[in-house]
Amino acid sequence: MDDKRAAILSEIPRLRRYACSLLRDRDSADDLVQDCLERALVRLDNWQTGESPRRWLFTIMHHLFIDQMRKVNRRGEAAMLPLEAGEAQSAPADQVETIASREILDALQAIGPDRRAALVMVAIEGFSYAEAANILGVPAGTLMSRIARGREELRSLLDDSSRRRSIRIVER
């Protein structure tokens, strides 16, 4: 196995985590990772040795994700509303999710794809603003406003779902 492939292989866990934050369904997330890996291998020459494959791979995956989201759902951001608990797509049986993590992952899914990607890139994947802006192909100012709005949206979605939960408890 050559060094390039080995380096790509070691990035898979991170790519999967990013994909899981973008897409709620685990199989779909792995499909996205697979698409990304396949595209990366075709373009292996574009990647210069010595450079970490991480940024390169995240850029490829992000483009795959955003292009398709735009194609499929032009009005995505406005149309995304929070899922009611129980309406959420079911998580695979082999995946144990606590209520708290289910709730926050559902909320993450409900924020617009652009904001979701920006927030996760920085808050979970640990890229700097400059790196994330580069990967996402937007100016740093746009990235910052997406992060700020994404965080605020996430907060209010979580507040809503905990409010709904308490209403349900009261009703019982």
Binding site: R5, I8, L9, I12, L41, A100, I104, L105, I124, L154
Partner: peptide
Amino acid sequence: ALRAALAGVMDEPVPARLRQAVL
């Protein structure tokens, strides 16, 4: 909370189909 919810993925073994895609 978000990091905790996504932490498990990092520890999972890489699915065979993804390994195979790279190799």
